[in-house]
Design a protein around this nucleic acid. Structure first.
Length: 117
DNA sequence: GGTGTGACCAGCT
DNA sequence: AAGCTGGCCACAC
């Protein structure tokens, strides 16, 4: 792990994808948490950018499990259908009200804590 | 190769 | 208490 070679072969995007794919069923995390896990707190915007590019990726990225720090589904407009993101979350047992996840801190999945760098 | 922009976050005013 | 600004890094033009 210490020999991680961050280069063009494994870009920031690939790292983000790997973390997002590790999010368990019925849980959710935030852009900032992922950015913090990758080492840059201020890079939260890049995580969102990576999600935008995830649609082009051949891999299936569960981007609906990634929301902002307060649990609001800020990226729902990028799913093609604005209600798709909420429906996906609700199908996993997550309650969404007013585009915001209910009891977000309860289902919050912190990669830095769960994966334990 | 500089500039703008983006699904964010935290700190000031 | 609420709004605004800066910062962070990768990508497209």
């Amino acid at each position: 792990m210490a020999d991680y070679k961050v280069d063009t072969e494994f870009s920031f995007f690939e790292n983000v994808y790997e973390v997002v794919k590790l999010i368990p069923y019925g849980r959710a995390t935030s852009y900032g948490a992922i950015a913090n896990y990758l080492g840059s707190r201020g890079s939260a915007r890049m995580v969102g950018w990576a999600m935008n590019a995830s649609h082009q990726s051949a891999e299936a990225i569960p981007a609906h499990r990634v929301v902002n720090r307060i649990g609001v589904l800020t990226g729902r407009h990028h799913f093609g259908a604005p209600e798709l993101m909420q429906q996906l979350l609700e199908s996993e047992g997550i309650i969404v009200e007013n585009n915001q996840i209910k009891d977000f801190k309860t289902i919050f999945w912190d990669p830095a804590r769960e994966l334990k760098i």
